[in-house]
């Protein structure tokens, strides 16, 4: 049992590191991205990685108080991606 829990904690730390790394990589794409589509995609990926970081924080602390936070960030991320895309496509968000 104890080895399993140790292994799980190790995997959790590794996941924290990997999510931070992918957040940094998305930031690189956000800066160098040659076109608007790439920048929108990088921001969308960063929102999704942020959801993953919050979920991992919930696992690490053993609580479920972060559930609402993840739900709200998921909704905000989707709406903001669609708003960016619509602004590029139509020149306006709500016509």
């Amino acid at each position: 049992m104890n080895t399993a829990i140790d292994l799980m904690n190790g995997a959790m730390m590794l996941s924290f590191v990997i999510l931070g790394l992918s957040q940094l990589m998305a930031m690189v794409r956000l800066v160098i991205g040659p076109d608007t589509g790439d920048r929108i995609l990088a921001l969308d990926t960063m929102v999704i990685n942020a959801i993953g970081l919050i979920v991992l924080l919930g696992i690490a602390q053993g609580t479920q108080v972060y559930f609402e936070v993840t739900l709200i960030i998921a909704m905000l991320g989707f709406v903001s991606t669609v708003a960016y895309a619509r602004f590029v496509l139509r020149g306006d968000i709500i016509e």
């Binding site: 076109d35 608007t36 589509g37 929108i40 995609l41 969308d44 989707f78 991606t81 669609v82 895309a85 619509r86 590029v88 496509l89």
Partner: peptide
């Protein structure tokens, strides 16, 4: 849905 929107932007 968001992937489709980004593809349309491209």
């Amino acid at each position: 849905i968001s992937a489709n929107f980004i593809a349309k932007v491209n």
